[in-house]
């Protein structure tokens, strides 16, 4: 069964992994599904539709997904610029900047939440000038959600694009240049297609993370029902009201929608990478 079967420990390693994974991930996850299937639970199909059809619930889904989408797009653009500058340009203190990119990964979300809220608040360090100069309000508005999600999504984008940019063979660009391509054409036809799959992956990860994000959002969002209330918050609200069916329905929907979106993103990526797989060419005479 195993390729390198002279190595020891296959059974205990796999056995423990499966046991742990079952206890910690699989059995808990199955509760979501069984909650729906259980006939005696209050959550029938009709009941489910009822919960999801609720206006406040639909508004929260709209807020969560639209904000995550916008944030992922902005993070994609900013993240690409960051990756480009970090890979291509000479910069003092590059190591420090590079390490800082991971700050949103490492910083607990609650901490990110309170600091972003205080910075972008109407009297905050960034909120005040933005409000006075441009008349833009960020905190306690839907825009606040987007700002928090850009912060959270940025490292996903940079960390997926960076290695691909590093690996682009410079001689491909030189070749394009030798054939008369301008700098813009090199970017458009050589760099962009090579980076695109990674960019889509990063976008997908930032988006998926954004939809489910809770800690960094709730402090800055204002949490106004119908306007700036996100799905995870609504789940918690329902839980606090002991509405387990409602919470489950929301969580399950969010899970399914996220999976479908991730699947769609993976399909797009597969289509981009699709090539006719006929390795017979190698056999031809030189």
């Amino acid at each position: 069964m195993s390729k390198t079967n002279i190595l020891p420990g296959f059974r205990p390693a796999l056995g423990f992994s499966l046991l742990y994974l079952s206890l910690v991930v699989l059995i808990p996850l199955s509760t979501l599904v069984f909650k729906i299937l259980q006939p005696d639970a209050h959550l029938s199909w009709a009941g489910y539709l009822d919960i999801i059809g609720n206006e406040r619930v639909q508004a929260s889904f709209r807020v969560s997904f639209v904000a995550a989408l916008i944030a992922a797009f902005i993070a994609l653009v900013l993240g690409f610029v960051l990756a480009w500058v970090l890979v291509r340009y000479r910069l003092p203190a590059k190591r420090i900047f590079d390490a800082l990119i991971d700050l949103p990964f490492a910083l607990p979300t609650a901490v990110a939440g309170i600091v972003l809220a205080s910075l972008y608040a109407p009297n905050g360090l960034l909120g005040e000038p933005l409000n006075q100069l441009l008349g833009v309000k960020i905190a306690f508005k839907p825009a606040g959600i987007v700002v928090a999600l850009i912060f959270i999504g940025l490292p996903f984008i940079v960390r997926t694009i960076e290695p691909v940019l590093q690996e682009i063979d410079p001689s491909m660009e030189e070749a394009a240049s030798s054939m008369g391509a301008s700098r813009w054409q090199i970017f458009r036809y050589i760099i962009f297609p090579n980076v695109l799959p990674a960019a889509i992956t990063g976008f997908g990860m930032a988006f998926a993370r954004g939809v489910g994000e809770y800690g960094s959002v709730i402090f800055i969002a204002g949490n106004l029902p119908y306007v700036s209330e996100i799905v995870p918050l609504l789940i918690i609200t329902k839980l606090e009201q002991y509405d387990y069916s409602g919470a489950t329905a929301l969580a399950l929907t969010m899970l399914v929608v996220s999976f479908v979106l991730l699947l769609a993103i993976n399909l797009v990526q597969l289509m981009l990478l699709k090539r006719p797989q006929t390795p017979t060419a190698a056999k031809a005479k030189p």
Partner: peptide
């Protein structure tokens, strides 16, 4: 198995908490 290990990355933390409430609550 590899996919399952990565699964918690794509589940909202709030949902993750909810799972255990549904299990042990």
């Amino acid at each position: 198995l590899t996919t399952l290990i990565d699964l918690p990355f794509s589940v909202s933390p709030v949902t993750a908490g909810l799972l255990f409430v549904l299990l042990f609550g």
